[in-house]
Amino acid sequence: MGRRHNETEATRFSFLILLSVGLISCALVYACVSMVFRTNINSSVLEFNSMALVGEGGNVGGEGDLGGESGGCCRGIDNLELWGAAVKWGSEFKFNSSEECCRACKAMCTGNDGPCLCDTWVFCGNREACGSKFGECWLKKQKDAMEPDKQEEGKTVSWTSGIIFGKGEGIVGLKTKYGTLHIKLFPDCAPHSVAYILQLLTLRHCAGCQFYRAENRGEIWDSEGHHIKNAAYGPPFALIQGTLETVGSKFKNIPTEDCPTIRRGSVAWIGSGPEFFISLANHEEWEKSYTVFGSVLPEDMKIAEKIAHLPTKPDVWNNVNVSVLQEHVPLSIQRIKTRHGHLTTSVKID
């Protein structure tokens, strides 16, 4: 009688099947875990890069902490050398452009943990004037970013410098009897404009600074600033307008800087200043015509709305119907700091 091998062969065959199933299962589990792990890493890297370029909370536009419509601004002031404690030595840290230098500083300012590790960048981009220093990118840290330490400036200076404000920094207050409008400044998008505002903070007063025009949203824009379909575009034009020129001082025209689409809360110059406005609505129809140097914090827009509803009288400017305040609203400028997440006043300019 032949050997009964069916049971033995079946057992061996079953064992091989179970072994194969086990190996395949392990391989599938490993592949899934690896995929999830890689996805998490990639998400973290993308989030970090977004924060480094955009700022606090990952916001963009007027509410972003580093400023700019896309968070991609990286502008500085030519012929200016800012001083400060070096966090990256330029002799060992070189780039081809001031924008790359600026972005290296921004990468050290994620907006997650208060002040930036780098708040000042200084770049030498004139090959002839810089000589061996051409391409040097110095990253620095100020004792006070609102009062940057200036080494020298003028046509003979070959350096370009810029500042960056971190979380809770770079906020000024426009104080009126109706409340204080807290404004986040955008030095990376409008460095000349912000330099002027910081200069105002060094004065003892801001005599002549005021709002004189006020136009509400009417039935043209909703409460969030969105344009109502098929509605006109004004008047009213959804803004409050004023001046930041002090009596007795000569105003120097500010060059055109970053001109993003005007959004609700945008603070922008009219022409080269010192006339400015705060927008109560999104104005795509204005097609990026104005330098935006800051944005009102969202919680303070109710103050701007209150001013916009004050009594006005009609007037005509360059064939445009406008609404002028019956009584101008004087304003003073304050420097604002944050303590434990709360805004506090540190300096007042009447």
Rank of each mutant, 00 (worst) to 15 (best):
S289M: 08
D188W: 04
K155W: 08
N49K: 08
T8A: 15
G58N: 10
E305A: 10
N253C: 06
G168V: 09
T246Q: 03
R127N: 13
C102R: 01
V292E: 00
D258F: 06
I278T: 04
A214H: 00
E299V: 14
I17V: 15
K306C: 08
N321A: 05
L18N: 15
C109N: 03
I171V: 12
V292Y: 03
S332P: 02
A304T: 01
L198H: 02
W89M: 06
A10Q: 12
K140Q: 14
V347W: 09
V36L: 12
Y233F: 15
D222H: 05
L66G: 05
I24E: 05
P115C: 06
A190H: 03
K229Y: 10
T8V: 14
G58P: 04
L53R: 02
N79Q: 08
W159K: 05
M1N: 12
E153N: 06
G57N: 14
Q151V: 13
C116R: 02
V296A: 01
L185Q: 03
R339I: 08
K288T: 11
Y196T: 03
L139H: 09
W138R: 02
N126D: 09
K94P: 11
H192K: 10
E9T: 13
S44A: 12
K106R: 01
A52F: 02
I197C: 06
N216R: 13
W83L: 09
T243P: 04
T312I: 05
E245L: 03
G2M: 12
H340Q: 07
N40D: 15
C26Q: 10
F186C: 05
P314T: 10
G125W: 07
A104K: 09
I41K: 09
F134G: 00
C137A: 01
Y30T: 06
C124P: 00
R4N: 12
L53N: 11
K143H: 11
V172D: 04
T39W: 11
G72S: 09
S14N: 14
T39P: 08
E219P: 03
A232W: 08
L185M: 06
D78S: 08
T256D: 15
F123E: 00
T160G: 03
Q326H: 14
T243A: 02
E257H: 04
R264Q: 14
L198E: 11
R75A: 07
E284F: 13
G111Y: 00
F93C: 04
P330K: 01
S132V: 08
V87E: 10
A104C: 00
A86V: 02
D119T: 05
F93R: 02
N42E: 11
R4T: 15
Q241R: 07
N253Y: 07
W317P: 03
C118D: 13
C74H: 14
Q334I: 03
A214W: 00
F37T: 10
S20M: 09
R4M: 14
W286A: 11
G62T: 08
E152A: 12
A107Y: 15
T202N: 11
C209M: 10
D113H: 08
T156I: 12
A129T: 05
H227K: 13
L19W: 14
G111A: 07
F15L: 15
